[in-house]
Design a binder for these strands. Structure first.
Lengths: 111, 111
DNA sequence: GGCTTAATTCTAAATTTTTCGAAATAGAGC
DNA sequence: GCTCTATTTCGAAAAATTTAGAATTAAGCC
């Protein structure tokens, strides 16, 4: 079990919760400067302590970054990490093992 | 909390485990006809009952499909589901909210 | 039917995750 | 320093996940 698989699994696990996935999508679609934790809290309608725990999970996984702006903390998506993660998921889907394929694998064209 | 977010979270959670992620990558990179459970077992070096549980998790999430071939069961990736999942993760990353942006968001260009 | 191989389901114990109220920390303004 | 707002950390209970041995099901073959 390589280090990369462990890391990717940790990141996917962090995304594998409705609240945390909503948070990530909010920051992905939100402003580049980041979204205040308080705004996420009202948007998701959950207790602050619960939100904070989920934000820490995403942060530890490296999927979001945080920056202080006065008394508010702004969370933003780590696009590079997210891109590397999705690429890892699809890696080598077209090689199809040892021999070169005559027709493209289903993951490359339609499906 | 929409249905889609729940579904995507379930799929990501299914991927959020080193063994299950390894399984998915094996079947993504494996032959179109699917990979036998037994081959996955020797490759991952874990008890059959444990493997079977993980395969069921991936299957329930819709990420893999199974087909019987004699006494062996072949698992293959559901590429369409996997593609929809990764697209969901990135959805609207370039729109950046209500107003059209003057410059492309970091997720669209470099980063 | 009986035997063998492939894989799953059953069962249960250990561990981890999730949740949130209460308390603590951090910065801004008076 | 005091106070207010924003957010996190502490602590602890409930729920879900992970693991794997033992028993079971399924298919092929003599």
């Amino acid at each position: 079990m390589t280090r990369r698989v462990e890391q990717a699994a940790e990141q996917l696990k962090a995304l594998g919760h409705p609240v945390r996935l909503s948070i990530l999508r909010s920051v992905v679609q939100g402003p580049e400067a980041g979204t205040p934790a308080g705004e996420l809290q009202t948007r998701l309608a959950i207790p602050g302590s619960t939100l904070s725990h989920h934000l820490a999970t995403l942060s530890v996984a490296g999927l979001v970054a945080v920056a202080r702006d006065g008394t508010t903390l702004r969370y933003r998506a780590e696009f590079g990490v997210l891109r590397a993660l999705t690429e890892y998921l699809w890696q080598d889907c077209c090689s199809g093992g040892v021999a070169p394929e005559t027709k493209p694998a289903p993951c490359c064209g339609g499906d």
